[in-house]
């Protein structure tokens, strides 16, 4: 299947590209847009972006593999990224990560078989005063911070997410 941005994403693509004196400069925001649009950054997506921006494929590959927010494998509908760096480690980040792992039955770096949840351990998210915390990326492209967490709050969040699972697309099926 040949990839194609939706009309809305195409508008965003054009806006992004118009901000820069050359196309290559638009690569990072365009890859972020592509991830929202296509669920994850597959080789096919990189190929499409290289073609759309008219930049070399190896340049796209190099950049896409350097930045950690760009998922080169499909993640779950809900990607929970737990900070465990420094202040979060001091304030219970690891305990919360373990709590999440227990609650979802997967380890950090894993995705459940239904592709509902992925947990990742990530580095400092600039939320040190409100640790422990995690960042949630959902497959509809939303990025949200959840801060000052404790087990009760985590339970609540997971419950809300479970309710939303049906309406979220599976990143594997997004292209």
């Amino acid at each position: 299947m040949a990839l194609q941005f939706s009309t809305e994403a195409e508008d965003q693509f054009q806006t992004i590209v118009s901000r820069y004196p050359n196309n290559l400069a638009a690569l990072l925001p365009v890859l972020m847009l592509a991830q929202e649009e296509f669920g994850w950054i597959s080789v096919e997506v990189m190929d499409y972006i290289a073609e759309r921006l008219d930049v070399s494929k190896s340049q796209v590959f190099s950049t896409a593999t350097f930045y950690t927010m760009l998922n080169k494998q499909p993640v779950g509908k809900c990607h929970i990224q737990v900070c465990t760096t420094f202040s979060c480690a001091l304030a219970g980040g690891y305990e919360m990560l373990e709590y999440l792992e227990e609650a979802l039955g997967i380890q950090a770096g894993e995705t459940d078989p239904e592709h509902n949840f992925t947990i990742s351990e990530v580095e400092c998210l600039a939320s040190c005063g409100t640790a422990p915390m995690f960042q949630l990326t959902t497959s509809d492209g939303e990025i949200e911070y959840f801060e000052d967490l404790d087990p009760d709050r985590v339970d609540e969040i997971l419950e809300d997410l479970n309710d939303r699972l049906d309406e979220l697309p599976d990143p594997r099926d997004m292209h």
Binding site: V43, M46, D47, S58, Q59, V60, F61, T65, F66
Partner: peptide, 21 residues
């Protein structure tokens, strides 16, 4: 010809071509 590039980062960096090239 730009075939080669670095992929990944840090001590996981490797020399690569674009997959399939």
């Amino acid at each position: 010809t730009d075939e080669l590039t670095t992929a990944q980062r840090g001590d996981h960096t490797e020399i690569r071509t674009f997959p399939g090239q």
